[in-house]
């Protein structure tokens, strides 16, 4: 049986305390919420903290609530099951309900939190392996080694962003609230991601996510999330497409955001999408152009399930399908892969 290595388990009652402990203990400490990513990685020797700072006793990062004029608050400590099943989320942001509901399996979603999924460690099939395996191939940049085994010339780690909810919340313009010993800050969620497989979060290790706001201005946007993977459960995304758009009264696209996951170390915003989609109806030609642009910025590598050229090509297909769904009259819903929650 795979077992956890020894550690000291610390359970603070508040985020500020937790942040204080993390700051005090430094690199030897790691925060854990649901544990569904941390424990497997500790069992395989990818994470080697001496101290685990558990957020299980913290209350202030829970709750999902609508506040007039402020938007929708989603506490980072809410389970993925709670997010996927929340009535407002399902009604207004089906893409988020779908994304949360498509993470791994029901059992895992019952333990795993939205905060954990937003900050889930980047993945790579040279890295997500046992100590024995990594030793046999020669360790990689991300853990214990000094070269990237995916692309030996690369100076940065190419592990991929594997969050389903990050691209969706980015597409909805969500803002993150971070707590640390030095106080709180509120930043656009997408600014927290860096395209570096090791240093993939633009936050200090002692900063903890309290939750996210989906701003009031994102209500009324059509939104969708489509996920590519081999099986309908268990599997991480090998491509995810989150798309959100606002249609004007005349049916013209007023605003659009397309964000990809699993094609880089950070969620990938298709920057040029508004240029080709906004100011006109979302017709086949515009969709085709946007999908082509998305494919161009999609750079999957040979470090996850399914061929990388295939995942790149699927970017175009999935973006096309996502936009078609959003363009349909009355469409608000999630994609075909969206599980009933």
């Amino acid at each position: 049986m795979l077992r956890l290595p020894d550690f000291t388990y610390i359970r603070p009652r508040t985020l500020a305390e937790a942040a204080g402990v993390l700051q005090e203990l430094g690199a030897e400490a790691m925060a854990v919420a649901g544990g569904t990513d941390v424990y497997p990685k500790m069992k395989r020797g990818q994470f080697t903290p001496r101290y685990l700072v558990s957020l299980s006793r913290v209350e202030e990062h829970r709750g999902i609530r609508r506040e007039e004029a402020r938007g929708l608050w989603i506490g980072a400590g809410e389970t993925l099951t709670a997010v996927a099943g929340h009535a407002t989320v399902r009604r207004e942001f089906p893409a988020l309900a779908a994304a949360a509901g498509l993470v791994s399996t029901l059992q895992l979603r019952n333990a795993g939190t939205i905060g954990g999924n937003l900050f889930v460690d980047t993945r790579c099939n040279y890295y997500d392996q046992s100590f024995f395996w990594r030793q046999a191939v020669g360790f990689c940049l991300k853990k214990d080694g000094d070269i990237c085994l995916v692309a030996p010339k690369s100076r940065v780690c190419l592990a991929i962003c594997s969050s389903d909810t990050a691209p969706v919340l980015s597409s909805l313009g969500a803002e993150a609230v971070l707590v640390s010993a030095r106080g709180n800050r509120r930043v656009p969620l997408e600014t927290l991601y860096r395209d570096d497989g090791i240093d993939y979060l633009a936050k200090r290790p002692d900063e903890l996510l309290q939750g996210v706001w989906i701003p009031e201005s994102s209500f009324g946007w059509r939104n969708v999330y489509l996920k590519l993977r081999r099986r309908g459960s268990f599997d991480f995304p090998v491509l995810g497409v989150a798309a959100a758009l606002r249609l004007g009264a005349a049916g013209a696209c007023e605003a659009v955001r397309i964000v990809l996951t699993a094609v880089a170390s950070a969620p990938k915003v298709v920057e040029d999408a508004p240029r080709v989609l906004c100011g006109k109806p979302v017709d086949a030609a515009a969709i085709e152009e946007a999908a082509e642009l998305a494919m161009r910025v999609s750079h999957p590598l040979d470090n996850a399930d399914m061929d990388y050229w295939y995942r790149k090509r699927m970017t175009r297909v999935y973006v096309t399908r996502a936009l078609r769904q959003l363009a349909e009259v009355g469409a608000t819903t999630a994609g075909p892969d969206a599980a009933p929650v």
């Binding site: 395996w133 099986r231 309908g232 459960s233």
Partner: peptide, 18 residues
């Protein structure tokens, strides 16, 4: 290199109910 590419029950894909 001769190392098994996917020696895990996550990456060796076994069909689920779905």
């Amino acid at each position: 290199s001769g190392v098994h590419k996917i020696p895990s029950i996550l990456e060796y894909k076994s069909p689920t109910t779905l």
